[in-house]
Design a protein around this nucleic acid. Structure first.
Length: 228
DNA sequence: AAGTGCTTCAACCGCCATACT
DNA sequence: CAGTATGGCGGTTGAAGCACT
Protein backbone atom coordinates (compact mmCIF):
# COMPACT_ATOMS: atom_id res chain seq x y z
CA UNK A 1 0.00 0.00 0.00
CA UNK A 2 1.88 2.94 1.29
CA UNK A 3 5.10 1.03 1.18
CA UNK A 4 6.09 3.25 4.02
CA UNK A 5 8.78 1.66 6.09
CA UNK A 6 9.96 3.62 9.07
CA UNK A 7 7.79 6.65 8.44
CA UNK A 8 7.27 9.04 11.26
CA UNK A 9 4.07 8.79 13.28
CA UNK A 10 2.37 10.73 16.01
CA UNK A 11 1.89 14.41 16.53
CA UNK A 12 3.09 16.81 13.89
CA UNK A 13 5.77 19.34 14.68
CA UNK A 14 5.62 22.97 13.58
CA UNK A 15 8.43 22.31 11.15
CA UNK A 16 6.50 19.50 9.53
CA UNK A 17 3.40 21.64 9.33
CA UNK A 18 5.38 24.38 7.66
CA UNK A 19 6.86 21.97 5.13
CA UNK A 20 3.48 20.51 4.31
CA UNK A 21 1.84 23.88 3.98
CA UNK A 22 4.59 25.11 1.73
CA UNK A 23 4.20 22.06 -0.45
CA UNK A 24 0.43 22.40 -0.76
CA UNK A 25 0.69 26.09 -1.52
CA UNK A 26 3.19 25.36 -4.22
CA UNK A 27 1.68 22.28 -5.84
CA UNK A 28 -1.91 22.43 -4.68
CA UNK A 29 -4.03 19.73 -3.08
CA UNK A 30 -4.13 16.28 -4.55
CA UNK A 31 -1.46 13.82 -5.64
CA UNK A 32 -1.05 12.91 -2.03
CA UNK A 33 1.29 10.07 -2.88
CA UNK A 34 3.77 12.70 -4.09
CA UNK A 35 3.39 15.03 -1.16
CA UNK A 36 5.79 13.38 1.30
CA UNK A 37 8.55 13.47 -1.27
CA UNK A 38 7.77 16.97 -2.48
CA UNK A 39 7.53 18.34 1.03
CA UNK A 40 10.54 16.45 2.29
CA UNK A 41 8.48 14.80 4.96
CA UNK A 42 9.01 11.38 6.42
CA UNK A 43 5.28 10.82 6.62
CA UNK A 44 2.90 8.60 4.71
CA UNK A 45 0.51 10.11 2.16
CA UNK A 46 -2.48 9.46 4.35
CA UNK A 47 -0.95 11.24 7.25
CA UNK A 48 -0.13 14.26 5.08
CA UNK A 49 -3.61 14.40 3.63
CA UNK A 50 -5.26 14.10 7.00
CA UNK A 51 -3.06 16.74 8.54
CA UNK A 52 -3.89 19.15 5.78
CA UNK A 53 -7.60 18.48 5.66
CA UNK A 54 -8.16 18.39 9.39
CA UNK A 55 -5.80 21.02 10.60
CA UNK A 56 -3.78 23.08 8.17
CA UNK A 57 -6.32 23.89 5.51
CA UNK A 58 -7.16 27.61 5.61
CA UNK A 59 -10.87 26.83 5.26
CA UNK A 60 -11.05 25.21 8.64
CA UNK A 61 -13.20 26.86 11.22
CA UNK A 62 -12.08 26.50 14.80
CA UNK A 63 -13.86 26.92 18.05
CA UNK A 64 -17.06 25.58 19.44
CA UNK A 65 -20.00 24.47 17.37
CA UNK A 66 -22.81 26.96 17.23
CA UNK A 67 -26.36 26.01 18.09
CA UNK A 68 -27.35 26.11 14.43
CA UNK A 69 -24.50 23.81 13.57
CA UNK A 70 -25.47 21.40 16.31
CA UNK A 71 -29.05 21.34 15.13
CA UNK A 72 -27.92 20.66 11.62
CA UNK A 73 -25.62 17.86 12.73
CA UNK A 74 -28.39 16.22 14.71
CA UNK A 75 -30.80 16.38 11.84
CA UNK A 76 -28.33 15.27 9.25
CA UNK A 77 -27.18 12.41 11.42
CA UNK A 78 -30.72 11.28 11.72
CA UNK A 79 -31.00 11.44 7.99
CA UNK A 80 -27.64 10.05 6.98
CA UNK A 81 -26.30 8.08 9.91
CA UNK A 82 -22.57 8.12 10.49
CA UNK A 83 -21.79 9.71 7.16
CA UNK A 84 -19.47 12.22 8.66
CA UNK A 85 -17.99 13.49 5.45
CA UNK A 86 -21.41 14.22 4.02
CA UNK A 87 -22.53 15.89 7.20
CA UNK A 88 -19.36 17.93 7.36
CA UNK A 89 -19.97 18.96 3.79
CA UNK A 90 -23.02 20.88 4.97
CA UNK A 91 -21.05 22.65 7.65
CA UNK A 92 -18.63 25.08 6.05
CA UNK A 93 -15.27 25.00 7.72
CA UNK A 94 -15.95 21.85 9.70
CA UNK A 95 -14.20 18.60 8.96
CA UNK A 96 -15.59 15.11 9.13
CA UNK A 97 -13.24 14.45 12.01
CA UNK A 98 -14.56 17.44 13.91
CA UNK A 99 -18.13 16.36 13.43
CA UNK A 100 -17.36 12.78 14.33
CA UNK A 101 -15.51 13.78 17.48
CA UNK A 102 -18.28 16.12 18.47
CA UNK A 103 -20.93 13.53 17.89
CA UNK A 104 -19.11 10.78 19.72
CA UNK A 105 -18.56 13.02 22.70
CA UNK A 106 -22.20 13.91 22.94
CA UNK A 107 -23.44 10.45 22.06
CA UNK A 108 -21.50 9.16 25.02
CA UNK A 109 -23.24 11.54 27.35
CA UNK A 110 -26.53 10.73 25.74
CA UNK A 111 -26.03 7.01 26.24
CA UNK A 112 -25.10 7.46 29.85
CA UNK A 113 -28.25 9.43 30.41
CA UNK A 114 -30.28 6.73 28.74
CA UNK A 115 -28.73 4.05 30.89
CA UNK A 116 -29.54 6.03 33.98
CA UNK A 117 -33.09 6.38 32.74
CA UNK A 118 -33.29 2.61 32.36
CA UNK A 119 -32.11 2.11 35.88
CA UNK A 120 -34.75 4.45 37.15
CA UNK A 121 -37.76 3.69 35.04
CA UNK A 122 -37.39 0.27 33.59
CA UNK A 123 -37.21 -0.10 29.87
CA UNK A 124 -38.73 3.17 28.90
CA UNK A 125 -35.74 4.25 26.88
CA UNK A 126 -36.05 1.28 24.57
CA UNK A 127 -38.79 3.25 23.01
CA UNK A 128 -36.66 6.19 22.13
CA UNK A 129 -37.48 7.59 18.77
CA UNK A 130 -34.18 6.76 17.14
CA UNK A 131 -34.23 3.07 17.87
CA UNK A 132 -37.86 2.85 17.03
CA UNK A 133 -38.38 4.07 13.56
CA UNK A 134 -35.60 5.78 11.69
CA UNK A 135 -33.27 3.83 9.53
CA UNK A 136 -30.46 6.13 8.53
CA UNK A 137 -29.16 5.73 5.03
CA UNK A 138 -26.05 3.66 5.44
CA UNK A 139 -24.27 3.22 2.15
CA UNK A 140 -21.16 5.11 1.24
CA UNK A 141 -21.30 7.40 -1.75
CA UNK A 142 -17.95 7.22 -3.39
CA UNK A 143 -16.53 8.74 -6.47
CA UNK A 144 -18.84 8.36 -9.38
CA UNK A 145 -18.08 6.65 -12.58
CA UNK A 146 -18.05 8.93 -15.59
CA UNK A 147 -20.74 6.74 -17.08
CA UNK A 148 -22.92 6.97 -14.10
CA UNK A 149 -25.51 9.51 -15.15
CA UNK A 150 -26.46 7.66 -18.30
CA UNK A 151 -25.67 4.06 -17.62
CA UNK A 152 -27.67 3.33 -14.55
CA UNK A 153 -30.95 1.87 -15.50
CA UNK A 154 -30.88 -1.39 -17.36
CA UNK A 155 -27.43 -2.72 -16.72
CA UNK A 156 -27.22 -1.63 -13.13
CA UNK A 157 -26.95 -4.55 -10.77
CA UNK A 158 -28.44 -2.26 -8.19
CA UNK A 159 -31.88 -3.21 -9.32
CA UNK A 160 -31.46 -6.67 -7.91
CA UNK A 161 -28.89 -6.05 -5.25
CA UNK A 162 -30.21 -4.20 -2.22
CA UNK A 163 -26.77 -3.06 -1.21
CA UNK A 164 -26.06 -1.64 -4.62
CA UNK A 165 -29.49 -0.15 -4.66
CA UNK A 166 -28.79 1.71 -1.47
CA UNK A 167 -25.44 2.81 -2.72
CA UNK A 168 -27.10 4.27 -5.74
CA UNK A 169 -29.44 6.12 -3.48
CA UNK A 170 -26.59 7.46 -1.50
CA UNK A 171 -24.88 8.62 -4.63
CA UNK A 172 -28.05 10.33 -5.66
CA UNK A 173 -28.14 11.93 -2.29
CA UNK A 174 -24.66 13.26 -2.77
CA UNK A 175 -25.59 14.57 -6.19
CA UNK A 176 -28.75 16.09 -4.90
CA UNK A 177 -26.71 17.98 -2.37
CA UNK A 178 -24.75 19.50 -5.18
CA UNK A 179 -21.84 17.15 -5.49
CA UNK A 180 -21.01 16.91 -9.11
CA UNK A 181 -20.38 13.28 -9.81
CA UNK A 182 -19.31 13.87 -13.36
CA UNK A 183 -16.10 15.54 -12.40
CA UNK A 184 -14.41 13.02 -10.25
CA UNK A 185 -14.54 12.11 -6.63
CA UNK A 186 -17.30 13.38 -4.44
CA UNK A 187 -16.23 16.55 -2.71
CA UNK A 188 -17.92 18.77 -0.25
CA UNK A 189 -19.42 21.76 -1.97
CA UNK A 190 -18.17 25.16 -1.18
CA UNK A 191 -21.55 26.39 -0.09
CA UNK A 192 -23.69 25.16 2.71
CA UNK A 193 -27.21 23.87 2.49
CA UNK A 194 -30.01 24.84 4.73
CA UNK A 195 -32.59 22.57 6.22
CA UNK A 196 -35.03 24.07 3.80
CA UNK A 197 -32.91 22.65 1.03
CA UNK A 198 -33.15 19.26 2.63
CA UNK A 199 -36.89 19.44 2.97
CA UNK A 200 -37.31 20.64 -0.55
CA UNK A 201 -35.02 17.94 -1.73
CA UNK A 202 -37.11 15.35 -0.06
CA UNK A 203 -40.21 16.60 -1.78
CA UNK A 204 -38.66 16.81 -5.19
CA UNK A 205 -36.66 13.62 -5.14
CA UNK A 206 -39.19 11.41 -3.51
CA UNK A 207 -37.77 8.03 -2.72
CA UNK A 208 -34.15 9.05 -2.89
CA UNK A 209 -33.50 10.30 0.54
CA UNK A 210 -36.00 8.14 2.19
CA UNK A 211 -35.43 4.71 3.55
CA UNK A 212 -38.58 3.71 5.28
CA UNK A 213 -41.19 6.30 6.05
CA UNK A 214 -39.43 9.51 6.59
CA UNK A 215 -41.02 12.86 6.86
CA UNK A 216 -39.99 16.33 7.75
CA UNK A 217 -41.44 15.78 11.17
CA UNK A 218 -38.68 13.29 11.81
CA UNK A 219 -36.24 16.12 11.66
CA UNK A 220 -38.00 18.25 14.17
CA UNK A 221 -37.29 18.25 17.84
CA UNK A 222 -39.49 19.54 20.58
CA UNK A 223 -36.76 19.29 23.10
CA UNK A 224 -33.06 19.29 23.50
CA UNK A 225 -31.84 16.84 20.86
CA UNK A 226 -29.17 15.51 23.17
CA UNK A 227 -31.64 14.49 25.76
CA UNK A 228 -33.59 11.28 25.72
C1' DA B 1 0.24 20.63 45.77
C1' DA B 2 -0.30 15.98 44.20
C1' DG B 3 -2.86 12.24 42.49
C1' DT B 4 -6.62 10.41 39.91
C1' DG B 5 -10.25 10.22 36.66
C1' DC B 6 -12.50 12.25 32.74
C1' DT B 7 -12.90 14.64 28.32
C1' DT B 8 -11.37 16.13 24.06
C1' DC B 9 -9.41 15.73 19.72
C1' DA B 10 -5.48 14.68 16.62
C1' DA B 11 -3.87 10.87 14.42
C1' DC B 12 -3.69 6.00 13.01
C1' DC B 13 -5.65 1.82 11.05
C1' DG B 14 -8.15 -1.04 8.10
C1' DC B 15 -11.20 -1.25 4.61
C1' DC B 16 -13.50 -0.10 0.28
C1' DA B 17 -14.34 2.22 -4.31
C1' DT B 18 -12.49 3.99 -8.26
C1' DA B 19 -8.85 4.82 -11.61
C1' DC B 20 -5.29 3.17 -14.08
C1' DT B 21 -2.33 -0.22 -16.51
C1' DC C 1 -10.75 -8.84 -17.09
C1' DA C 2 -7.33 -8.88 -13.41
C1' DG C 3 -4.14 -6.75 -10.66
C1' DT C 4 -2.29 -2.65 -8.60
C1' DA C 5 -2.21 2.15 -7.04
C1' DT C 6 -4.47 5.86 -5.04
C1' DG C 7 -7.94 8.48 -2.64
C1' DG C 8 -11.15 8.63 0.78
C1' DC C 9 -14.01 7.14 4.65
C1' DG C 10 -15.50 5.57 9.35
C1' DG C 11 -14.00 3.46 13.61
C1' DT C 12 -10.82 3.49 17.17
C1' DT C 13 -6.98 4.81 20.03
C1' DG C 14 -3.99 7.38 22.95
C1' DA C 15 -1.80 11.62 24.53
C1' DA C 16 -2.64 16.05 26.47
C1' DG C 17 -5.24 19.04 29.09
C1' DC C 18 -8.74 19.81 32.51
C1' DA C 19 -11.59 19.03 36.63
C1' DC C 20 -12.18 17.09 40.81
C1' DT C 21 -10.82 15.13 45.28
Amino acid sequence: MDGSVGVRKGAWSKEEDALLEKCIVKFGEGNWHLVPERAGLNRCRKSCRLRWLNYLSPNIKRGEFGQDEIDLIVRLHKLLGNRWSLIAGRLPGRTANDVKNYWNTHQKKKKEKNEKAVDQSGRESEETSESRSIKPIKPKPRALSVNWPTGTSSNSPGNQNPVKERETRAVLLGRAFGEDGSSGPVRPPSTSYTLDDLFQLETNEDGILVEGNFGTSDLLFDEDPWMN
